[in-house]
Design a binder for these strands. Structure first.
Length: 420
RNA sequence: GGAGAGAUGGCUGAGCGGUUGAAAGCACCGGUCUUGAAAACCGGCAACGAGGCAACUCGUUCGUGAGUUCGAAUCUCACUCUCUCCGCCA
């Protein structure tokens, strides 16, 4: 949710920002409805003031046993006007929020302008592509050959875009998650939270998935949705609260399954476990004051990177351009991990500063100098566990089809050095 | 699933038709005192919106939504959530 006051005062800046995000310019329409709303409110409030005054008079008059019939008649007349003005006001408010709800965040000033992922800008790189003296296999070839990854079974159970992992492969997934949680809680200063995987509309509205992106989500029963990311429950932890400045920043992490319908991704990455309806992820969320959020984004990125550095896997980081950013984000870094089997970089983490966009929707404030200001929220993957598993398989594979266990994970495997 | 109780400001908690946006306490902020701190004392302290250059004025809000009334935190109805007891269950 954007600040209507900002739109009122900076209509052309607002329109330009939307244009850079491939959204049509609508400041004129917004300002017009907003004016109508405020005009209605001004008239309505004057009448309400008049009514309140009369009611007070009636109260005093009655206690003195005076005749107040004419006052009562006046109020009855006013009540008719009030109800129709209230209706009009509601129409205008609904009209306005319907538009504002679906407008994405304004990009930060240092975000590159562009249309799509081709305009993203490389921010930094870590390590080098590994060299193989054989042709590296893709993760699903490795997994299926080892009989530890099965897509026929999962399709029997649940259809396409699922996977069944077995034995040591299943344990690898668990070890990766444990390693990430240990790292983030012990070294990176995040508090581990165990959260619900089902949430209400209002939570998804708060983080920005609803109302615009309902088709990307799975529903569960009448009143619940499956979380598409732990960002939703973690960020909503601070909804409808006034936080104290000296308790910030809050840093939360959670290991959860994520459920996505992948509605618009038909035919994309259909083989393997790169793009699934269900996957697990360790999520990072920070809540800060506005002046700290830029710094916090760099810190969060570094926390996410620390996992891949420990795993000694090559990656690069790109700054997403305006056209490629998510709805709630002001600025986003993607970490793209190198996959030798794919011979490509693939997204493994996305770290975003949402500014006050989500906190406006959630009504999360900070008491600062005796004033209440909107908090800033950030979220990032730290990291997607399934894709990390893919990255380990492809980067640590050996010629005989086995996989080396990265050193930082060996303690979870009784110091074993290879998967089998 | 059955029975009962409740939802008030950052927190605790009074109010149960008419200057009650709401007592009191805690927390917080400012001041006096103190070498400094604490204590004590004095003062301030809800949010959101509309209007105004501003001092300020007005409106809305006591879980949510409707209703009764000239007037609702207070009465009625529905819903949501929380707590206690019983049953069932990982």
């Amino acid at each position: 949710m954007l600040d209507i006051d900002f739109i009122r005062k900076n209509p052309s800046e607002f329109d330009n920002a939307l244009k850079s995000r491939n959204v049509e310019s609508i400041s004129k329409r917004i300002i017009k409805i907003d004016e109508e709303k405020r005009n209605t409110q001004t008239i309505l409030q004057n009448i309400l003031a008049e009514k309140n005054l009369l009611s007070k008079k009636i109260g005093i008059g009655k206690s003195k046993k005076e005749n107040v019939d004419s006052e009562i008649k006046k109020v009855e007349k006013l009540n008719n006007e009030i109800s129709s003005l209230k209706e009009l006001e509601k129409i205008k408010i609904d009209e306005l929020t319907a538009i504002l709800n679906r407008i994405p965040n304004i990009p930060a000033k240092d975000v590159p302008i562009g249309d799509n992922e081709n305009d993203n800008i490389e921010y930094k790189k870590y390590g080098n592509k590994p060299k193989f003296n054989f042709i590296p296999k893709k993760h699903f070839e490795l997994g299926e050959n080892l009989n530890l990854m099965n897509f026929e079974l999962s399709s029997k159970l649940s259809g396409s875009r699922f996977v069944v992992l077995k034995g040591i492969m299943s344990k690898l997934e668990r070890a990766i998650a444990t390693f990430m949680l240990d790292k983030h809680t012990l070294e990176n200063g995040y508090t581990e939270i165990s959260v619900p995987f089902l949430v209400k509309d209002s939570s998804l509205y708060g983080t920005g998935q609803l109302p615009k992106f309902a088709e990307d989500l799975f529903t569960a029963g009448e009143n619940h949705w499956l979380i598409p990311t732990a960002e939703v429950p973690l960020t909503n932890l601070v909804r409808e609260q006034i936080l104290l400045e000296n308790e910030l920043p809050s840093r939360f992490t959670a290991y959860t399954p994520c459920f996505r319908s992948e509605a618009g991704a038909a035919g994309k990455d259909t083989r393997g476990m790169l793009r699934q309806h269900q996957f697990t992820k360790v999520e990072l969320v920070s809540v800060t004051t506005p002046d700290q959020s830029e710094k916090e984004l760099e810190r969060m990125l570094n926390s996410a990177e620390s996992i891949l550095r420990d795993l000694e896997i090559h990656y690069r980081i790109v700054t997403l351009c305006t056209g490629d950013m998510g709805f709630a984000a002001k600025k986003t870094y993607d970490i793209e991990v190198w996959l030798p089997g794919e011979n490509a970089y693939r997204e493994i983490s996305s770290c975003s500063n949402c500014g006050d966009f989500q906190s406006r929707r959630m009504n999360t404030k900070i008491k600062k100098d005796n004033k209440n200001i909107y908090a800033h929220t950030l979220n990032g993957s730290g990291l997607a566990v399934g894709r990390t598993l893919i990255a380990i398989l492809e980067n640590y594979q050996t010629q005989d089809g086995n996989v080396l266990i990265p050193e930082c994970l060996q303690k979870y495997f009784d110091n074993k050095k290879t998967l089998i």
